[in-house]
Amino acid sequence: MSGIALSRLAQERKAWRKDHPFGFVAVPTKNPDGTMNLMNWECAIPGKKGTPWEGGLFKLRMLFKDDYPSSPPKCKFEPPLFHPNVYPSGTVCLSILEEDKDWRPAITIKQILLGIQELLNEPNIQDPAQAEAYTIYCQNRVEYEKRVRAQAKKFAPS
């Protein structure tokens, strides 16, 4: 494992614990031996107030490669969400998460999670990743928002 990646992720964890947006979660997972795995984080993004996503808490896994922060983490909703920019596998399609697009090593975990929260309610229809959600979003916004509200209710924190 890269010392650069681990040191950056340790800084990220410290900064997150000191200050993070209300309702968001970002925690490194534990290895079988109980030690912390900084390369694999369990996160959760709350649906934004005043949107059909409100009330939901959407679980996301963030996986970092050894060359982080040169390369972005892979962000994957578990379980996958109904959304035009979420692949059926759950992987998020967002330009700041793509090395050859808008990724920059200075982007923080907090910025990534806030960017994904923004994307939930403002899909990028130029870059669809899920045919069904994309089609319904474009053709029947009322039905799309109904499905999103049902999903938010399903993923409401207990």
Score class of each variant (00 low, 15 high):
G90T: 04
E132F: 06
P123E: 00
E118Y: 11
L113C: 13
K48D: 03
F24A: 03
S95H: 00
W41H: 10
P69R: 01
L81I: 13
I96S: 12
L57H: 15
A129L: 00
P157F: 12
L81R: 03
Y137R: 03
C93S: 00
N121F: 03
L60Y: 09
T108P: 11
I136F: 13
D127V: 00
P84M: 14
F155Q: 14
A129Y: 05
L9F: 00
I112Q: 13
D19L: 03
D19G: 07
V27H: 12
G56H: 07
I4T: 06
K14N: 07
D33G: 02
Q117F: 12
I45T: 10
K101E: 13
N124K: 01
A129W: 00
F22M: 01
Q117L: 09
G3F: 11
R8T: 08
A26F: 12
D19A: 12
G47Q: 06
P46N: 07
A129G: 04
Q11N: 09
V86P: 02
C43D: 07
G55E: 12
Y137L: 06
Q111P: 15
E118M: 10
T35M: 04
K101P: 08
L57N: 09
I136P: 01
E12Y: 02
C138F: 08
T135V: 15
E98A: 15
C43F: 06
K18D: 03
I45C: 14
G50S: 12
K154M: 09
K49N: 13
N85S: 10
S71C: 11
A26W: 08
F77I: 03
C75K: 00
E99N: 09
A5V: 13
M62P: 04
F77Q: 00
M62A: 09
T51P: 02
Q111C: 15
Q139W: 09
E122S: 11
Q130T: 08
S2N: 08
Q11C: 14
L114E: 11
L63C: 06
Q126M: 11
G56F: 00
A15G: 10
L97I: 15
E145C: 08
F155C: 11
W16T: 04
A5W: 10
P88N: 08
L60Q: 04
P80Q: 09
A26Y: 01
M39P: 06
Y144E: 01
P32G: 12
L97N: 01
A131N: 13
P46K: 06
C75Y: 03
L81K: 03
P73W: 02
L94Y: 04
Y68G: 02
R13C: 01
A15T: 13
N140L: 02
F24N: 05
K74S: 15
A26D: 03
L38P: 07
N40M: 12
R8H: 08
R149Y: 08
W41E: 08
Q117A: 14
A133W: 03
E143P: 05
P157V: 04
G55Y: 15
A133I: 03
N31T: 08
A129K: 02
L81N: 00
N121K: 10
M39C: 09
A133F: 06
I116K: 00
P73R: 03
L6M: 15
G90E: 00
K59D: 08
K76L: 14
A150F: 10
F82H: 06
L119W: 09
P52T: 13
K146E: 13
E145N: 15
E78F: 04
E54T: 10
K154C: 00
L63F: 13
Y68L: 02
I96R: 09
P46S: 07
V27F: 04
Q117N: 10
T91A: 15
G90N: 02
Y68I: 02
P28V: 06
T91E: 14
L9E: 07
D100H: 14
A150V: 11
K18H: 08
G47K: 03
Q11R: 13
L57W: 08
M62N: 02
G47F: 06
D127N: 05
N31Y: 13
G3P: 09
R149M: 09
Q130L: 12
I4K: 06
R13Q: 07
K110H: 09
K18L: 04
C75I: 15
F82G: 04
P52I: 11
K146C: 11
P73H: 02
F64V: 12
H83W: 03
K59Y: 10
L9N: 12
K110C: 06
H83N: 01
K65I: 14
K154T: 11
L63A: 11
I116V: 13
M62V: 12
G55W: 09
E99Q: 14
P73I: 08
T135D: 07
I112S: 07
Y144N: 02
S158R: 11
K101H: 14
W103K: 01
K48M: 10
K110I: 07
I116W: 02
F22A: 05
E54D: 06
Y134T: 05
K76W: 12
G34K: 07
P79N: 15
G3S: 05
L6E: 10
N40Y: 09
A44I: 11
L97W: 09
Q151P: 01
P88W: 06
E78Q: 12
C138Q: 11
A156F: 11
E12H: 05
V92Y: 04
W103Q: 00
D66W: 07
I4W: 08
K49T: 08
D127L: 01
P52M: 10
